[in-house]
Structure formats: C-alpha cells, structure tokens
C-alpha cells in the first residue's frame, strides 16, 4: 500500500503544499487530534529563509471566483529559530494508513490503523546562491530533515528575475547545491514562466531528485473606493499568488508537460480538492499530490483524498483492472523513484 518517493517510504500519495498548513499553530486549534489524525504522508514546512521575515503588510488575502489570491510574503522566524524551535515540534509525526473501507467499519478506525512515520521536508528560499547554500548545508546537518525543497520563486537580487523562471540560472543554482547535501532535493517550480518544462529539465540536469509544481500564479486584485474612482491594489504586497480550483486546469497541464519531459518524480498540486482531482494529477504523471488551499476549507481534506485514492485502488483491483489507474497523459510506465508496493 505504501509509496516510495525519493527513497522515502510514505503511507500514501498525499502531502501538503509548502506554506499551507502550520502544524505548530494547528495543534493550538485541534490539540492531540491533529497528531492522531495527521492527514499528510510527508510534511512540507513553510518556506524558511536565512534571516527572519515579518511577511507582507495586510491585507493579505483576496477571494476570487473559486480561488484565493494570497500575498503573505513568506513570514518566518529565520533558519536559526526554525532549527532550534520548530524542528523539535515537527519531529516524530506519524499518519494512519489510508483506508478503503473505513466508513463501512471494515478497516480499523484511524486511531487503531497501522501508522507510518511522516518524513519532514524543509522548504528553503535564498535570494542568492550563497544564501541557498547556507540553508541547504544547515539542513544537511539535521537528521530530522528527510528532504529539502527549494523555493526558487524568488527574484534574484541582482537580475530581478525569478531564479526558477530562467532555466540556465536554475540549473546553475541547483548544481551548486547538489554537492552540499545527500538528502533528496526537490525543486518547487514556478508557473510564472514561458516554458515550465525547460525549467523542470534544468532542475533535473542540475541534480534535483524531484520537482514539485505548481506554485501560485501571479495575480492581483483591484478595488475602487467609490464608483469612478481610480482602482488601487487591494493586497498589501501589491500582487500575490492565485490558488484553489481556479488554477486546477492550468496545474494539470503544467504537471503533464513536466512529467513528459523529466524522469525524476513529480509532485503535482494546484486546486486539488477531491479524490478525482488527485487521480487526474496522478494520471498526468504525478507521483505525489499536494493539497494546499483545500486544507483551508477542511483541515482533513488530504486524509479524505488519501482514503479515496485507496478506495479507488481497491475498486480497480476488485474489477480485475490494473491496480494503478491508466496513465492517459504524459508517460508510459512507472516514474523513476516510484515503487508502489
């Protein structure tokens, strides 16, 4: 039942998108129930930067048709505080195995199901290759961190271009980081580029073990204080990133394009709210599916989706079909790094 991803054994295929689920804050709301019913097969931290960042001034959110623009600005207490304070609180998470038939009472309830460790993936962002190097080297020293995700959706301080939007620059940065860690490196690709597949190929050429996409689509919201008045940007950060069902079709296309181009495993995300959406991502070539904005509407959304995928697998097996859903798009055969047991 479990899934292998970059050498890690995961309970199922559903993880969180970086910056969409704060375990430490959620414990204040849900207490022990959060740990007992932990929904994600791996936990991706919010983006950690070298120095503390307060984040953008409010307002930070704007609801769109079937979506959300956020302009949060990567608030975090910085690398040193993450290592000292957050890491111990993110260590030792476990998740119950998904159940095809828990609702029927045939599988043990979540609190008695077989449990899997939840590997911790630390997401880091530097504004220079040197900053990235210090972040990756710090992660390399900590056994609690299973893998590192690179947030390359950040402007190069010298060129002003997003590091991840330029294949040449992206390959150089990943190649400089590759020798600094033995842990899996996942590159979180930006969708705000003309050619995401070339960026994915560049990440792979630089030595990435996996790519994840899509990050949010750059977006803005305008408001008028009165009819006829000039419009001004609502978000404190000016622009933000669009997520939710509004981006799902775009995400699916980008995941399919990237999966067809690279041989490393792909983490697909963007508007996934149901098992059917997750199955679409897997059919498009994703090994893992990340849930982000859907968790805002229901913190247990990822668990529901993981259970649904298990149910689908069981249903397919019962029907005499292949246990894996057919891949209609992208690739033939299993992706490298994936080995469903």
């Amino acid at each position: 039942m479990s899934v292998r991803f970059c050498g890690l054994e995961l309970a199922h295929r559903v993880i969180n998108g970086s910056g969409t689920f704060d375990v430490i804050a959620a414990r204040k709301a849900f207490g022990r129930a959060l740990d007992a019913e932990f929904p994600f097969a791996a936990y991706v931290s919010k983006t950690i930067t070298l120095k503390p960042r307060p984040g953008n001034p409010p307002p930070r959110l704007w609801e769109t048709p079937a979506g959300l623009i956020n302009s949060i600005g990567l608030p975090n207490a910085g690398l040193e505080a993450y290592m000292r304070s957050d890491l111990p609180q993110l260590t030792g998470l476990t998740t119950p195995a998904p159940a095809a038939d828990r609702a029927d009472g045939r599988s043990p309830p979540r609190d008695r199901a077989e449990r899997f460790p939840v590997p911790l993936i630390t997401n880091v962002m530097g504004s220079t290759a040197e900053e990235f190097a210090r972040l990756v080297e710090a992660c390399e020293t900590r056994a609690e961190i299973a893998a590192i995700e690179l947030n390359v959706s950040c402007p190069n301080v010298r060129t002003g271009l997003d590091i991840g939007a330029d294949p040449g620059q992206l390959e150089r940065v990943v190649a400089q980081l590759r020798p600094r860690t033995r842990k899996p490196l996942i590159v979180k690709l930006t969708p705000n580029t003309a050619d995401v597949a070339s960026c994915a190929a560049a990440a792979q050429a630089g030595g990435a073990d996996a790519v994840s996409l899509i990050n949010t689509l750059r977006a803005m919201a305008l408001v008028r204080s009165a009819a006829g008045a000039p419009a001004s940007a609502w978000l404190g950060g000016g622009t933000g990133g669009l997520s939710g069902p509004a981006v799902r079709a775009v995400a699916l296309a980008q995941v399919a394009t990237v999966a067809a181009r690279v041989s490393v495993p792909v983490v697909g995300m963007g508007g996934v709210e149901s098992t059917a959406h997750a199955r679409d991502m897997i059919d498009a070539g994703a090994t893992l599916v990340a849930v982000g904005t859907a968790s805002f509407r229901d913190p247990a959304a990822a668990a529901r989706i993981a259970d649904g995928l298990a149910r689908g697998r069981r249903g397919a097996a019962a029907a005499g079909a292949a246990a894996q859903p057919p891949r209609a798009v992208g690739v033939a055969g299993e992706r490298a790094g994936e080995d469903a047991k």
Binding site: T20, D22, A25, A29, P58, R60, E63, I72, P75, F296
Partner: peptide, 16 residues
C-alpha cells in the same frame, strides 16, 4: 479579519 482557514494555516488574518 478576513481569514481563509481559521487555524493558523493561511497566515492571512494578521494584524500588526
């Protein structure tokens, strides 16, 4: 404050 989740996940409902 406008908020997306209510449990600390979205970082949207901040006040200075």
């Amino acid at each position: 404050a406008p908020m997306a989740c209510g449990f600390g996940g979205c970082f949207g409902c901040t006040v200075a």
